[in-house]
Structure formats: structure tokens, C-alpha cells
Design a protein around this nucleic acid. Structure first.
Lengths: 361, 361
DNA sequence: GTGAAAGCGCTAACAA
DNA sequence: TTGTTAGCGCTTTCAC
């Protein structure tokens, strides 16, 4: 009766002439085993091609080394690309740390929370990665309350809920508003760099093309433009707002360029910037005498590179790495080992042709 | 001693006053259990909030209901978006069929195969979804040889390996070259529709801007352009080839437009088409008298919608649905229940402004 | 340092 | 129809 099936701990143990848990020890606490025994066991493992069955281990240890991620609804915009890259980096980074990514779908936050519970009790998932945090996000609260490891790509955008925190601590519940692990890109720093870059080139009236007020990400980027102006001791110029999209960008740019003094546009996204590019081209055609208008985008999507758009690049790889790091520490029960629980990563300005027009007062 | 921990089959059994096995039966073969017992058990399940532990079940049944998917290297091009959408549709579709998607990373096909083996013996993954099939693909062969369920998004692009097939059958190995489950978009039909659309509008010299010869997908799309010309009984015009990319598209378009008779461009991808759009605009500026040039792209990416590019839309949702269907059948051991083992899905031409220029001979 | 026993939660086979 | 027995492959006490 040949042992044709895949080898188990017992198979290895028999071969090495030891007991089953000695093999287990060699695998999990090698330092506890005498060197020569260890050597013998390792050889048997190698000869048999033994691979540990993680399902069995999971049943025993209740740890799956699985991370759940909701596959967010396909973004219409060009900016959806960012998520794609994040997913890729995350998969790679997780794999490097012995974790796996499991995808799931959910229609909305409420459904997502239901799925957390489901995946947790059902497949024993160890933790979750959240994207697209927004103000009034109920997911982080739920996960915190249930002591489930998680980290978010994106800050908590809520204002500090002083009222609730006070109330909660009165009831003895630890107030932890937004005190979860998160990693985010410093959008403010990004647009500030872009705006400075344009100010340095001599531009004085730089319009900001943003999203409607109220989105955390959008407001953050707007703040960077403001900051650059304040730091330069200048008065800020025009702001135009629009939903994300190329056509919307064209319209917003046209409104901004109605002011004849405007010589540059800082855009909240590459989609908007692409639309602005269109508007600027049209302007160059209709008013050949007007000074060339510089443009910067945000996200550094492939299209930006393609059309020569100066843009703010998000170091997605870093984001993924830190998220995995934080999650791994939480899962291993040593969250204190990761000093930076909440990480803001500085983006990088990638200068291309659309901002290369020098201006002097 | 309260039962604070999550309920198990035993907990439910005790509550319902039956044996563990009966509860299991209620869950897995309800028709075998007497209605009133079933009712009682179900009530207990409900009251206790019991959820079956899939890990334990998996250990016993050796089935994980997990599908593996390699997260492909982030595509630089705009066309990468297609994959993003596929991933989303796949996740949703799989979830609807009780399957989950697990991601993994691999540097190349060889590493991917190693990971198949790894995931298989380690986490007991049930099957794999492959993307980006290409000629000389070793992955499908390996999976077939190991009897591992899988389905590919993309046809096998190899020529029928007559020699090897003959040799294999001589040795008694069933020759199954490319006889695995696959779903693909009919690229040929797509470009054919695009070309016809332009021919119907009166265009006669329609250039094809393609990728370098040798890629299955690219050649397939090229074939559609040829077919439309042949069906129309006309002689085909210019072909220009370039690597995928916006700048490359501009260059190729310029080469094609050097022929003054060319009035339309059928492009192999949206990236190329976007570049072509740029070239056509420039041309309109430099040679205002030349007839407007129509353009079509391929993939119907968000950018296409944004700039008004006529493009061929891939029904990704359908692809995902069929793939899950096939995989589910294989996993359940009833592959014969899915009649169409190999599915070619017809894409849809989305007409926008870039092809709206009417031409008469 | 090593081994024996127990059990994670479930289902497949058989017996009652 | 229902219950009993056994075991999936692993790790965690606890003796030795």
C-alpha cells in the first residue's frame, strides 16, 4: 500500500523516525528541537515534498492569515486606476508577509459590514483592508467595536466627535474616535507642491479646479493650494468646482479662464486636468495672443504620462507596504511594534510638459 | 457556565435535542430529514445564530470554494482598466455562486505555476481563473495535466500542435490541445463592426492601426478589419503597427495619414486611438482643407467615453458570468452541464462623436 | 528534548 | 429517519 497521496505530518514523522509533534515543533519552534533530530526531520520533509496543510492548521489555531478586501464598485473615472495599482501592490506586499487577499463584493457600507461578520465567522478571516473612507463611515466603528484587525487606505474624515466621545467615556467605553490604523496620501502636500512649482515659475493667478466641497479628499487638496498661497504671502485667485470627469473639467476650466489674468490651473484630479487641457487648447486656438496656460493634475495616472500632464504621484507601493505592516502586527497581537499607527505619506510632483511654460510678472 | 463562544453543530444539536449529524443533514441534505425535526433544528440554528465553519468543513470535504487569480502586473496602458472591471465582475459573480476569489502575485508564468502548486496543496484552492493567455502558454497545459479546474479569459492562441498531439496519443495520453474551458471576446467581430460602420458612412480608405504582428489578440482584431473589407468587395488600405501607447498611437496615425486618401482610422486599442485623436487634431490645424478623419478605438475605457471616442465595448460582465459558471460546474464534477465549454462573446460598437463625420465618395 | 493524548468543527460511512 | 463511530491534519497541553 503505497502512500501516493500528499504527505502529512505523520508521513514525515514515520520517515524521520520521530513522533508527529516533533515534526510540528521543527516547523514552528525549531530552536526547541535538538539539531540532529531537526536535521533528520528537515531531510524527510524535503524528500517527501511535504507542505503544511494550512486549513488543518487554521482549524486548530483559528488563524487564517487571510485579509479581506471589498472590491469597490468600478470607478467610472480615470482615477479608478489608482485602486487597481493599490490592489496589485497590496497583493504583492501581503504575499511577502505570508498573508493572502480575499476579495468580496458589497453594494454599500451596510452590506460590507454584514459581509465582515459573515467572512469572519465563516472563513475565519483575520482582518480587513478598507478603502475609500469617508465622513460618517460606519465601518471603522463597527470593526473597532468588534475588535477585528483592520487598516484603512484613507484617513478618518470625521470631525472629532467630541460629544459622543464624552458620552461614551461616561459609560466606561473607551473613546477611540478615528484611532484606528490608517495610511493615507497627504493630498494637501501634493497640491501645495504643485502650486509652489507654478508660483516659482512666475505664475501669480493660479486657479484651483476642485470637486464640490464636502469630500474629505477634495477639501484636503484644496487646502494645499490655499497653503501655498498663504506661505507666499499672496492673495489667492479663482476656485472653480465640478464633479470629477473630463467634460466637467473642460467646463470648469472655461469658467476659470474667463478671468483673463489666470495663467495656470491646479486640478484636483487627472480627469479634471485632462478636461482642462482640452479647454486650454481651445483657448490657444481662439486667442492666440493669450499667454500659455500651465496645468497640473493629481494621481499621475497612465494617461497623464501619455499626454505629458504634470501631476502629483501617489506612492501606492508605500501605502500598501505600511498597511500590510500594520495589519500583520495587529494579527500577531503586537500592535505596539508598529510605531506609526497613522501614516501620512508625502506624494511626489512629476513635472512634465503641461507646466513648463515659464511666466514672469 | 455560559456558552459565550460561537455556536457549533453540537450546540445546535443539544438545543434541538437531536444528534450532531442530524443538524448536518438539515444543512446539507434537508430532504432526508423529517419535516418537524428539520423545523426544530432550523429554529435552533436561527436562535443561536449558528453559522457553519467553512474551515472545518473544508478540512473534511477537501473543497474550499476558493478560486485563485493572479493579480497581473499593473498595466501601464489605459487598457489596464479592462482587467479592473473584470476583477470586479468576477468577484460579484463568484460570490453569487458561493465562490470566493483569492489573489496572488507572480512575476512570470513559471512563478505562477509554482504558486498554483503551492496554493493547491497548501490552502486547497479549488480552481483558477487565468487571464492574458498567450501563445506558448505553459500554464494551461500544466493545469490540464494536473487535473486542476480552471478557465481562462482569453482563447488558447497556439496553433493546433498536431505533432505533439499525435505523439501524446501514441503514448496513451489524451491529446487535449487547447481543450480547456475558456471565454473570450470576439475581437475580430469587434473591429469588423467598427470597419463596417465606417464603410457604411462612406469611408473608403480606412487605415488599421494595430500592434506588432504575433500577438493573438492583436492579430484577431486585425482580421476583423480585413474581413470587413473583403465582405465589402473592396481593396484594403493602409496598416500601421505600433506598441500600445498614446504617443505610439500618434506616431502611427501620422504615418497612416501621410497617405492623403485616408479618411478614417480603426485602432486596435483606446490608447492608440487616443494618440490618433491627437494626430488628427494636429492635422486639422495644419491642413484645414483636408476632410475630417474618423476614429474608432477598442475596449471602451472610461477615457473613451470622456473624449467622445467611438469604441468597441467588451461585455466583461458576461465574460465573468460564464467563467464562474464553467468553473462551478468543474468543481461540482459536472462539467457536462455547461454545454458551451468555449465561449466567444460578441462585443458591441459604441458610436460616439469621433466617427460621426459622414463621407461620400 | 521528545512523545502521548486530546480536540478544533465538520461530514462520510455505517448501524440502529 | 436518526444516531454512532471515525477521522480530515494540525497544534497544544502535559507527562516522560
Amino acid at each position: 500500500m503505497t502512500q501516493a497521496s500528499t504527505p502529512t505530518l505523520v508521513t514525515v514523522a514515520e520517515r524521520a523516525g520521530v513522533s508527529r509533534q516533533t515534526v510540528s515543533n521543527v516547523l514552528n519552534s525549531p530552536e526547541i528541537v535538538r539539531p540532529d533530530t531537526r536535521e533528520r526531520v528537515l531531510r524527510a520533509i524535503d524528500e517527501l515534498g511535504y507542505r503544511t496543510n494550512v486549513v488543518a492548521r487554521q482549524l486548530r489555531t483559528r488563524r487564517s492569515f487571510l485579509l479581506g478586501l471589498r472590491m469597490p464598485p468600478a470607478a467610472d473615472g480615470i482615477s479608478g486606476q489608482v485602486l487597481d495599482r493599490f490592489l496589485h501592490a497590496l497583493t504583492e506586499e501581503a504575499q511577502g508577509s505570508g498573508l493572502r487577499i480575499m476579495l468580496f463584493a458589497a453594494a454599500d457600507d451596510e452590506a460590507e459590514i454584514r459581509e465582515y461578520e459573515n467572512l469572519r465567522t465563516t472563513t475565519g478571516i483575520d482582518g480587513f483592508v478598507l478603502t475609500a473612507t469617508h465622513s460618517g463611515d460606519t465601518r471603522t466603528r463597527w470593526l473597532s467595536d468588534h475588535d477585528i484587525p483592520f487598516a484603512t487606505f484613507g484617513r478618518p474624515w470625521d470631525p472629532e466627535p467630541a460629544g459622543r466621545a464624552a458620552e461614551a467615556s461616561a459609560e466606561g467605553v473607551p473613546p477611540k474616535p478615528g484611532h484606528h490604523a490608517w495610511v493615507d496620501i497627504d493630498g494637501r502636500a501634493g497640491t501645495r507642491a504643485a502650486t509652489r512649482h507654478l508660483l516659482d515659475a512666475g505664475h501669480r493667478r493660479i486657479a484651483f479646479l476642485g470637486w464640490p466641497e464636502g469630500s474629505g479628499v477634495g477639501d484636503d487638496r484644496h487646502a494645499g493650494w490655499l497653503a501655498a498661497y498663504e506661505e507666499a504671502g499672496l492673495e489667492h485667485a479663482v476656485v472653480q468646482r465640478a464633479e470629477d470627469g473630463v467634460a466637467e473639467g473642460t467646463a470648469a476650466a472655461n469658467r476659470a479662464l474667463a478671468d483673463p489674468g489666470v495663467t495656470a490651473l491646479v486640478c484636483v484630479s487627472d480627469s479634471i486636468a485632462l478636461g482642462a487641457l482640452e479647454a486650454v487648447r481651445e483657448l490657444a486656438r481662439s486667442e492666440p495672443d493669450r499667454a500659455p496656460v500651465a496645468i497640473t493634475g493629481f494621481d499621475d495616472t497612465p494617461v497623464a504620462g501619455a499626454v505629458g500632464l504634470t501631476s502629483v504621484a501617489q506612492p501606492i507601493d508605500q501605502v500598501a507596504a505600511r498597511i500590510v505592516e500594520q495589519l500583520r502586527a495587529q494579527i500577531d497581537g503586537r500592535p505596539e511594534d508598529v510605531p506609526d499607527h497613522q501614516v501620512l505619506i508625502e506624494p511626489r510632483l512629476v513635472v512634465r510638459t503641461t507646466s513648463r511654460t515659464e511666466h514672469r510678472r
